[in-house]
């Protein structure tokens, strides 16, 4: 059983309030199994443990977390591939224009226009390690990393999962690298000890970036905001989904029809 837990964060409001309260909303995919308060900060995820009749676990329960900014680019967009390629493509286009230019004044104009639209040529932004290589607003427009408005378009990042459920060995969270080329990355996942039935608290540490302008330069300072979440672990004996009984049996498939007369 894979539980997907999505956190939606109003990053701009959270930064203004310096608090995640009222600015985080949770949704998961186990509402049909009993999760409650979907769409609210108080959501409780139901983790349905399934055991064999002898008490041994019949299936592993796994939690997956991901956090999105409400104003951030949609998660379905292949950021690390297309947009970075666009960034490189813009630079290549600039090089081609420069190669075809002979007058120094035109060179300066081309560089200025490129900087205005796409940012500095070949920018690696290594001075701002938390920021994406190619920052984009929710509409996909390039945003200068010097623009404080960009804060609202950044996804929050889960940097730790801790608390009672971790300390008591209910969940075993870790940060994993995704094999999916398009997701750029990293995600938090945890297996659940479904023998530990009941309501458990854990804390997500979310990192937001706060821009501050000083003397014309913008500094992006990471802020860690803890956020308490709950899971409710239940346990039941595995049943045959077709028969409702505890043991596997013959699947209720219709017997094959006799071949029609004359059929090949």
């Amino acid at each position: 059983m894979q539980n997907s837990i999505v956190l939606l964060v109003d990053v701009e409001a959270a930064l203004a309030d310096s608090d995640l309260a009222d600015n985080v909303y949770l949704v998961d995919n186990t509402r049909a199994l009993g999760s409650r308060d979907e769409g609210r900060a108080t959501m409780v995820s139901c983790v349905a443990g399934v055991h064999n009749p002898d008490g041994s676990p019949a299936a592993e329960a796994v939690l997956n977390w991901i956090a999105y900014g409400i104003s951030a680019l949609p998660p379905t967009l292949p950021r690390s591939f297309n947009l970075r390629s666009h960034h490189v493509a813009h630079d290549h286009a600039l090089l081609e224009k420069l190669a075809a230019t002979t007058h120094p004044r035109d060179v300066a104009a081309l560089l200025a226009a490129h900087h205005e639209e796409h940012g500095a040529f070949g920018a690696q932004r290594s001075a701002m390690p938390y920021l994406p290589v190619d920052p984009r607003s929710a509409t996909g427009e390039f945003v200068s990393p010097d623009a404080v408005d960009y804060a609202a378009h950044l996804n929050p990042e889960i940097v730790a999962i801790r608390g009672e459920a971790v300390e008591k060995g209910v969940i075993f969270p870790a940060l994993y690298g995704s094999p999916d080329f398009y997701t750029e990355g990293w995600y938090w996942s945890a297996s659940v000890d479904t023998n530990k039935v009941g309501l458990h608290d854990y804390i997500l540490d979310l990192r937001l970036l706060r821009p501050t302008r000083s003397g014309g330069a913008v500094t992006w300072a990471p802020e860690i905001h803890p956020f308490k979440v709950q899971i409710e672990v239940s346990a039941s004996t595995m049943v045959n989904g077709f028969t409702g009984g505890p043991l596997p049996g013959v699947l209720p498939l219709a017997p094959p029809l006799p071949a029609a007369e004359g059929a090949l």
Binding site: L8, D10, A13, A16, D22, Y25, E38, G39, I70, S71
Partner: peptide, 9 residues
């Protein structure tokens, strides 16, 4: 469907 916006305040 769960709809969110950035104008709560």
């Amino acid at each position: 469907l769960f709809a969110f916006d950035t104008h709560r305040r």
